[in-house]
């Protein structure tokens, strides 16, 4: 399904965010990527749909080499990958409906996009998806009128509307309170099984990762240092992922304690 091979990213500043990371995701599994801040988690996610350009290595989705594409073919490939953002990535001044329908932007003409004149199937799917994420009736509200949890669900609905082959999720819960975080995680795993697509989640809270993920990957300093089931994540592997002092503190944080909202992703 998704094959990442020896993916590296060095930023112009000389910061080596990713060092030859290889991994695979398949079926409808939920894969959690854990690691301290600055370990390269966000860079990894963004390199997969090439919002960030990897320095070397390949990404192959369903037989298509994403890293070899450019222009309209890259955009077509991006339609297959739904992305969900830490800061939601909603357009505040647009309505919920416009935000959700924007998941179809890769499929409509410029003129249709301008007129907000999306095909009937897309509109129906948008209504249905809003209902599914528990936001039925919110379509005419402006995105900035919603609460954090609601905003994240709009972000999820937008990603679903792409009818993607995979979901890329970047720190979905770090701006949310513990309870809302669980709702969002439940929704994501539910989508994975219902749609039969894999979900790749960057996540800070180990507790949530252990509870909801089928498999966990640990990144430390841009390197993949752990891979296994939640049960296999023992103290030894935790030490491996969170080596330094600052990170040790993070490993203690449980899902009952929300992470700092101001936490900056590694990109």
């Amino acid at each position: 399904m998704l094959h990442v091979t020896e993916l590296s990213k060095t930023y112009p500043t000389g910061d080596e965010a990713l060092k030859e990371v290889s991994m695979e995701v398949d079926g409808d599994e939920t894969l959690a990527i854990i690691g301290p801040s600055g370990a390269g988690k966000s860079t990894l996610i963004a390199c997969i749909n090439r919002l960030v350009e990897p320095t070397s290595g390949t990404v192959v989705l369903d037989g298509t080499e994403i890293t070899a594409l450019s222009g309209s073919r890259l955009r077509a490939a991006r339609r297959e990958m739904g992305m969900i953002f830490q800061e939601y990535g909603l357009v505040d001044r647009l309505t919920v409906m416009e935000n959700v329908l924007s998941g179809r932007l890769g499929y409509v003409s410029n003129w249709q996009a301008f007129r907000r004149n999306f095909p009937a199937d897309d509109v129906r799917m948008a209504y249905e998806t809003l209902d599914r994420v528990g936001l039925g009736g919110f379509e005419d509200q402006r995105a900035d009128e919603l609460s954090g949890g609601q905003r994240q669900r709009v972000g999820i609905a937008r990603a679903i509307l792409q009818q993607p082959k995979i979901l890329l999720v970047d720190e979905p819960t770090s701006s949310l309170d513990p309870e809302t975080s669980r709702t969002v995680m439940e929704l994501l795993t539910e989508i994975a099984s219902e749609e039969g697509i894999p979900v790749l989640i960057n996540i800070h809270e180990i507790g949530l990762a252990v509870e909801y993920a089928d498999r966990i990957v640990g990144l430390a300093d841009g390197r993949l240092v752990f891979e296994g089931s939640p049960a296999e994540l023992d103290e030894g592997s935790m030490d491996l992922i969170y080596r330094d002092g600052e990170a040790a503190e993070e490993s203690e944080s449980t899902p009952d304690r929300p992470e700092a909202v101001g936490d900056v992703p590694s990109t």
């Binding site: 309505t95 329908l101 509109v123 799917m125 209902d131 009736g137 379509e139």
Partner: peptide, 21 residues
């Protein structure tokens, strides 16, 4: 909202939406 009653009515969702002004 009318859309809601539609959906409650039998899983039928509207196929048109226009931006509130």
């Amino acid at each position: 909202m009318s859309h809601r009653s539609d959906s409650a009515g039998g899983g039928l969702y509207p196929e048109e939406w226009s931006r509130p002004t």
